[in-house]
């Protein structure tokens, strides 16, 4: 059988990828669904910043409370987390590590599903290859999620500025590393949702498939761990399996765990591209 893969020239393919990503970002910010997601995001993060982060940071800023927490239990105490210079960022880090992956799953569940079932891609593949279409959509989601992370990070910096402006230089340095880490953490989630969204016929179905993937791999991993304890754990197959190791860590120390999500993203994107080239649109 002839290959129907489009092999565009690299400049044209890159230009198409950028155009498609930009269209995705515009859709993410300006359509009704995008605006609702943005409003929900701002509301939730407003509450998170003003209550848990602001309140807890005022306590954690007190060295005596930090020492008290550190001495509670030698095992359970988050020593590295308590060593962060700016408590607002430490709390932002912990909450973001769980919030943004969840948000990425929900908001990137419709990278392909609805357009595929609506056959909208048929208008696009007359004009561009499947590779730019795939990578353009994924890049668009990455840009969207990154902008959400940036906004949350900037709001946290504002909070720090209001409490103590002298902390801003240190906060900026740590914030860059935190945001970079968060971006790396969410990338495999977006890649996995790209694959599931290609298979599913709706965003809801893609989300259900994600739940299924996590349940099945977790159960299989647990069973293997029980019956074959000598075998390595399969947990690393799942995006976010390194998050527990990141929580009690420093911004620079967390980067040590970056290779796993990077490799997971690369494998998932290759699988997605392979599938994209073969499915009926």
């Amino acid at each position: 059988m002839n290959s129907q893969t489009i092999t565009q020239g690299a400049p044209q393919a890159l230009h198409h990828t950028w155009l498609i990503a930009r269209q995705e970002v515009i859709k993410g910010f300006f359509n009704r669904r995008g605006i609702i997601a943005l409003l929900a995001f701002v509301l939730v993060w407003g509450l998170i910043l003003f209550y848990p982060i602001k309140q807890a940071a005022s306590y954690l800023a007190d060295p005596a409370i930090r020492e008290g927490l550190a001495s509670l239990s030698a095992v359970a105490s988050p020593r590295k987390l308590l060593s962060w210079e700016i408590p607002e960022l430490a709390l932002f880090w912990v909450i973001s590590l769980y919030w943004f992956p969840l948000f990425a799953i929900l908001s990137s569940a419709d990278q392909f599903a609805t357009d595929k079932s609506r056959k909208t891609f048929r208008f696009l593949v007359q004009r561009t290859g499947r590779e730019p279409l795939f990578f353009g959509r994924v890049l668009g989601q990455m840009l969207l999620q990154s902008s959400y992370i940036l906004v949350a990070g900037a709001a946290t910096l504002l909070l720090i500025l209001f409490r103590d402006p002298a902390l801003i230089p240190a906060a900026l340095r740590d914030c860059v590393l935190v945001l970079l880490n968060l971006f790396i953490v969410i990338t495999p989630y977006i890649a996995l949702m790209a694959v599931l969204s290609l298979y599913a016929s709706s965003a809801r179905q893609a989300t259900m498939l994600a739940v299924l993937v996590w349940c099945v791999i977790s159960i299989v991993s647990a069973l293997l761990g029980y019956y074959q304890p000598t075998l390595p754990s399969l947990d690393w197959l799942l995006p976010g399996s390194q998050i527990d190791l990141l929580v009690d860590n420093t911004p620079s120390g967390a980067l040590i765990h970056a290779p796993l999500p990077v490799v997971q993203s690369a494998v998932l994107l290759l699988a997605g591209l392979f599938y994209m080239k073969r499915i009926a649109l």
Binding site: I6, K119, R122, F123, R127, G129
Partner: peptide, 16 residues
């Protein structure tokens, strides 16, 4: 689907 055909072949797809 070949790159050389992009923009040269277009269609009114049914139900799209």
């Amino acid at each position: 689907g070949h790159a050389a055909l992009l923009g040269k072949v277009s269609a009114l797809p049914q139900d799209a």
